[in-house]
Design a protein around this nucleic acid. Structure first.
Lengths: 213, 213, 213, 213
DNA sequence: AATGAATGAGTCTTCATTCAT
DNA sequence: TATGAATGAAGACTCATTCAT
């Protein structure tokens, strides 16, 4: 009878709308600068409904972090194809990572920029996902080490550092690819693969990592 | 006996106290979460004096970014020793970088975490310094490529991408080293040097980059 | 027993209460000296509600000016009776004007004293209404000149000047009548009618304008 | 020895500089919007010196009102030439008034707009000057009445009302003359003289007041 | 399931005013 | 005579959050 305002939707749908709005707002403005008013309006609902479903700004932000972390981890997991050699697995994982972050810039911003910037309830929330990536890389390196028949694996802390460096390089390349016209996500992935797998010395001596080799 | 809350200090001194307090507060809480009240109290002065000298929260934050960016850039410039081979220069520069960020964790947090997270007057402020460091690394990689006497130098865009990756990795490792107890600047530098120079494949095959070689 | 601080009223009602409080406060203290706290308290609501409905101090003041200007212009329009001879119309209009300003002293103070004293967004807001009244008086004087069957009508610019003088005198008298106990609207109107219609010379020679003549 | 900064001036001179700056600032911005900082800077002295000489913002404003009121009253007194017939005296007084206010717009703004807008210490301060003008007009009318050999003078309250109307008309005409290109101060004075002395009826019947008659 | 009405608490910013020299 | 250094108090504005329906 008149304007349809899409009311009375099932809870799950409404919740998803709110989370979408929240991820977008948090990702673009940050935790503090984002306001519940803005999120509610972007979600097309009233503020009390947001509170009814998600309780508080803090819980809402936490829920966003969890959702996006899960989605990213799953994307990387799904992209990497177990059974391939370690370098091909890394290549596949990086491609999945770059593709997912390019398609979900706000989610990535929430995870990478915002969650780590705002103190304690949140930082440890992201740590879980970081640990998962670290575990993925660790596993890769372990597998590679076994392939190479080496007895001594790299120490754990070294692996954690390498994972940090890899993610940092990936994020920098993602930003650079976005800002530099003509650089595709795949090219960025190749650059990172070369950088991380072959190392600068090999690159300078004409021995890059070969995707097809 | 105890700290005398000394009064009537010359402007330059007070300004430095305020900036110190601001860097610490902004670095730990972020731009939005930090309050001018908190900064003033930490500096041991009243709020109006902060405004009298530094005009506004935005200008204060910008001043912090500029001061810390300048200090970091100068530290890296001073650490790198022109004349050495490229890998030794890189090693020296990384050491200077990680040492400075370890000694100024709040300043580094302001630059890396906070300034880039909080929109536009600030992001471009840091970008300038970052570009300077990227240019430095780009030069290093180019020089190394020439030293290798290869006929075909790496294409410019590849070099730029590698530099971005290297700087991104360094940034991530600096944050990680600050947050992880027991990781020294030298260890972080070594991890990154191995990662970037030798590459993962060499690492896993027991052929790391050798600082003394 | 006593005023119940009733809650949960419809927006339109609350808005009117706020505007009433604002007109009173602005009229008595001026734009700068009036505080939003004071207005909110006088309206019986919390400050955020004032902001929710009226956005800012500036918009609130502007809204007050518009409301009071509209009310005054309508009162004068309704009071003047087209069809009467010019002097009778003027007399009727003046009576309406002085009656309205006497009944709405704060509104009049907002228009005459405060709005014109506080710079540019506001001054031009009142100017529109003032011009409307000046145009009304200009028309009256022109009509009266035509009624007098004179061949040479007064030059336009002279008429405009006279209208300005008349309105200015009316404005001053309204303020004076409000501030001086015991001066009724009718007395003010009579004083001005004598002054403007008969002129000082006639007054001093015992020939005032006669309402009934 | 370097820049002359005009220091160590006698107190009277410094005080005049401060008052000049204050009149200008108060006149343009109003009592509340004017800041002591601004006044001190415009006067070319430090703030504590303003306080040393003039004690407080309130006293400073009061001093401004007194100075400007005295100057205006003296200008009008000096312009009016006792001994002339009443209408010529009024003409001379109006000319002096218009001339003075045109030459001292800030002083006039302080008296007319600002002082009356800001509550009680100040309003009564201006009242003194208003009374002086009322007394001037009253005297004129009394003289004219004697010239006309009338026994009964106009009641006091009527005279006060007439003075209010006259000043109101004068201020309106001053504003109008300033805003309308080509209208000189003298023309404005003539318009007001006609309006107030001859009255509208006489004007419309071709019997204006004659400056030379 | 959903919302219009409402607020306590806090943040940035300004200003008149004083102290020590 | 003159000022650089400093602050208490207040004011505009925002926001996360709740209540009544």
């Amino acid at each position: 009878m008149g304007v349809v305002k899409s009311k009375r939707m099932p809870r799950a749908v409404r919740e998803r709308q709110m989370m979408d709005a929240a991820v977008r707002t948090f990702g673009q403005l940050g935790y503090r600068a984002a306001s519940m008013d803005e999120i509610a309006e972007l979600a097309g609902v009233s503020k009390p409904l947001v509170y009814l479903y998600l309780n508080s700004k803090e819980e809402l932000f936490t829920a966003c972090i969890r959702r996006e972390a899960k989605a990213l981890a799953e994307a990387v997991r799904a992209g990497a194809q177990p059974g391939l050699p370690a370098d091909r697995q890394l290549w596949a994982g990086l491609n999945a990572f770059f593709t997912h972050t390019a398609e979900n810039p706000d989610g990535w911003a929430v995870l990478h920029r915002q969650a780590r910037t705002h103190g304690e309830p949140f930082a440890s929330e992201v740590a879980a996902m970081r640990d998962e990536i670290v575990a993925f890389v660790t596993g890769l390196i372990g597998a590679a080490a076994r392939e190479a028949h080496r007895d001594r694996a790299l120490p754990d802390r070294d692996v954690a550092g390498l994972a940090q460096a890899l993610v940092g390089a990936a994020e920098a390349l993602a930003g650079w690819a976005n800002d530099t016209p003509g650089v595709s996500a795949k090219e960025a992935a190749a650059t990172l693969m070369n950088f991380s797998w072959a190392g600068l010395e090999n690159l300078m001596n004409g021995r890059p990592w070969q995707a097809q080799a």
